[in-house]
Design a protein around this nucleic acid. Structure first.
Length: 646
RNA sequence: GCCGAUGUAGCUCAGUUGGUCAGAGCAGCUGAUUUGUAAUCUGCAGGUCGGGGGUUCGAAUCCCUUCAUCGGCUCCA
């Protein structure tokens, strides 16, 4: 007999070799139908694995990530089985569970292609196979056996993977006629996979390497119940309605023109208004925090970027240098502001007493992103960073870094960005060639970030290989409407550019010392930030950001003059920008989609309304009664200042 | 850049196997109406069917090419 300890601390004895699924069944048959994986002694395993010693046990229902993971991973195998029966001889890459669903990378072989019209067919076959409720069987094999199996099958991808695995750790999982190399864990059988949707196709390089062959990636998602799948698909549709590209068009915030060029956003008046509101807000904050604003040109001599190291690193893949009539003179569109800022630093001598020097600029930069990578406002070729550089003494670095964390959190809080990930992005230890600077400096910089984040009690994840080429960073990452991740704010410690630009300050010892540089952006870029803002708010911006704060609605032509009068007063108030006036449209039902997104309705000429007043209504909140124009202006002022209160 | 898909009026879309197939709704403009938040009535105007080339007696429809967009991959200073 063995003793099983449950998460609530209770202990029960079972016969040796019992499976987690059987334990679940003993507790209740209903439970057995709802669990998909188990954690035994801290390791997630198949429900069908026998437990052969005293152990702690947690059974995972759908709500637990390990359950979904096993479910979707088994679904990926099911899809592979379907693919193999539909495309005999198809070769398999990898087929993992992902955050939402699963995929399988496959090579259909000899000139065959899988196209979108085939997805239905794959889905139907999966459903057909699932109803057979085949048991999924785990088998430990030797490396030799595994390699022979896949050699016989002619699957070079799996063979390559096995070659890198250690003997004794290799397992195969089979259901029906299909066998796959896999670590597991899996469902005990394919039966629970009731609702399946094969979603999309994509190309994906084998092992993520651009030089390798491109495989076909088939994405899918599955659930234990049809209702769950339906709900998920509805959720996806709803999310698509919040897509900033869609709302941006509806609200006339920004546009793109092939004539101007791909990836070059054109801000329309209302979008510009939002952008400007953000700039004004942040500029105010920066002044209080001791930043000095600077302004630098959009181009720089190519030598500037040779000094910074950017040219060597990115010159070939960037916009080409601009040649001038002058022999040998070349300029580049600036891909970042730091080199310019370094030269501003260099323009004046600095005392240790004057540091830190905080220099900020809303700097527009230009980067040649690959055509297929452009995406609405979140990935563009021209964007404006809310960039700043802190030049400080080494002993000030940590406090300075921490104060920036505070600043980011403050701005995110004002904007209700609660759902973000703080990511410490370090150097890839296996590929140091990608980076400039000494190991010593990198060590120092990475430690600075880790310690500062810890001292701020910031919950972080650490990701090697995501650093900038000149230094490690702390990135703030948010998700868009359909779950894609985007980096917004970033704080980067840099010991390298100060050396390259020979930045110095005079110490108390009257010697020259090297300052440390912190690069930081809070929004990241206004383009990306506005995109995320649009998706977070579904276009219903807080009052202080709203491009149109009110719409004027005279109830009849008689009141047109008065409406115009109100319009003029409001426009002169410096608080109500771009007031929408519907005087000319009297008699037409106001049915603009966008109207719902304008916070205040000002009704003019209502019968109980006395002269010189307007009836004020707030969207979603109802009547505010009638008031004088000035009272309304004060109302908006106070609401905005309330929104901006910390 | 790579894999797959898409491109018809300002927007959302119809256009059956190539032969009155250049259409509808909304938006716009005309009149009428005056009713307070997703839809009042009338009339009008809007498109070389993304661009270019080809096949054909005939192309929105088939082929090639190019531009752009979408879903991913790679990349992301």
């Amino acid at each position: 007999m063995i003793r099983i300890t449950f998460p609530d601390g209770s202990v029960k004895t079972y016969r040796n070799g019992i499976t987690s699924l059987e334990i679940a069944e003993e507790i209740s048959p209903k439970l057995a139908g709802e669990v998909y994986a188990a954690t035994v002694n801290g390791v997630v395993v198949d429900l069908s694995r026998p437990v052969t010693a005293d152990a702690t046990l947690k059974l995972h229902k759908w709500e637990d990530e390990p359950a979904r993971h096993a479910f979707w991973h088994s679904s990926a195998h099911l899809m592979a089985e379907a693919l193999e029966s539909l495309y005999p001889g198809i070769k398999f890459g990898i087929g993992p569970a992902i955050e939402n669903g699963f995929y399988y990378d496959v090579d259909p072989g000899d000139g065959r292609v899988i196209v979108e019209d085939d997805l239905r067919k794959i889905e139907d076959r999966m459903k057909e196979l699932a109803t057979k409720n085949q048991p999924i069987i785990r088998k430990e094999v030797s490396k030799k056996e595994a390699i022979e199996f896949y050699k016989a099958k002619g699957d070079e991808y799996k063979t390559e993977l096995i070659n890198e695995l250690e003997d004794g750790t290799i397992t195969l999982y089979s259901q029906g006629d299909f066998t796959d190399l896999c670590r597991g864990p899996h469902l005990p059988s394919t039966g629970p996979i009731k609702a399946i949707k094969v979603l999309s196709l994509a190309g994906a390089y084998w092992r993520g390497n651009e030089k390798n062959k491109m495989l076909t990636r088939v994405y899918g998602i599955s659930f234990p119940k049809k209702k769950m799948l339906d709900d998920y698909l509805v959720l996806l549709e709803e999310a698509k309605k919040r897509d900033h590209r869609r709302i941006g068009k509806e609200l006339e915030l920004f546009t793109f023109s092939p004539k101007v060029g791909m990836g070059l956003p054109l801000w329309q008046p209302k979008g510009s208004e939002i952008r400007q509101n953000l700039i004004n807000f942040l500029t105010g904050v920066l002044h209080k925090k001791g930043y000095k604003m600077v302004t630098t040109p959009h181009i720089g001599n190519v030598n500037l970027y040779k000094t910074s190291g950017h040219f060597e690193k990115y010159g070939q893949d960037s916009f080409r240098p601009i040649s001038t009539p002058q022999e040998g003179e070349q300029f580049m569109l600036k891909p970042m502001n730091c080199p310019h800022h370094c030269e501003i630093y260099n323009a004046t001598p600095h005392s240790y007493k004057d540091l830190p020097f905080r220099m900020a600029e809303f700097g527009t930069v230009y980067r040649y992103e690959q055509s297929g990578e452009l995406h609405g406002l979140t990935r563009v070729r021209s964007f404006t960073q809310d960039d700043a550089h802190h030049f400080c003494r080494p002993d000030q670095l940590r406090e300075e870094f921490k104060s920036i964390i505070d600043l980011v959190l403050y701005v995110f809080k004002i904007l209700n960005f609660n759902d973000f990930t703080a990511q410490i992005s370090l150097r890839d230890p296996d590929d140091k060639e990608k980076y400039i600077g000494s190991d010593e400096n990198w060590e120092k910089a990475e430690q600075d970030i880790i310690v500062a984040a810890r001292e701020k009690n910031l919950e972080t994840i650490v990701v090697p290989g995501e650093a900038a080429f000149y230094g490690p960073k702390l990135d703030f990452i948010v998700k868009d409407a359909i779950g894609r991740k985007w980096q917004l704010g970033t704080i980067q410690v840099d010991y390298n550019l100060p050396e390259r630009f020979d930045l110095t300050y005079n110490g108390s010892d009257n010697q020259k010392h090297r300052p440390v540089m912190i690069h930081r952006a809070i929004f990241g870029s206004l383009e990306r930030f506005v995109a995320v803002l649009i998706e977070n708010t579904a276009g219903k911006f807080p009052l202080w950001l709203a491009p149109e704060k009110a719409v004027i609605l005279p109830i009849s032509e008689k009141f047109n003059d008065y409406a115009l009068n109100v319009l003029e007063t409001l426009n002169n108030s410096d608080i109500c920008t771009l007031i929408d006036d519907r005087s000319e449209k009297i008699g037409k039902k106001i049915r603009d989609n966008e109207l719902k997104r304008i916070p205040y309705l000002l009704i003019i000429g209502e019968k109980e309304t006395a002269d010189n007043t307007i009836s004020v209504r707030k969207q979603g909140e109802g009547d505010r009664g009638s008031m004088k124009i000035q009272e309304f202006i004060d109302l908006i002022r106070s609401e905005i200042s309330k929104e901006l209160e910390y």
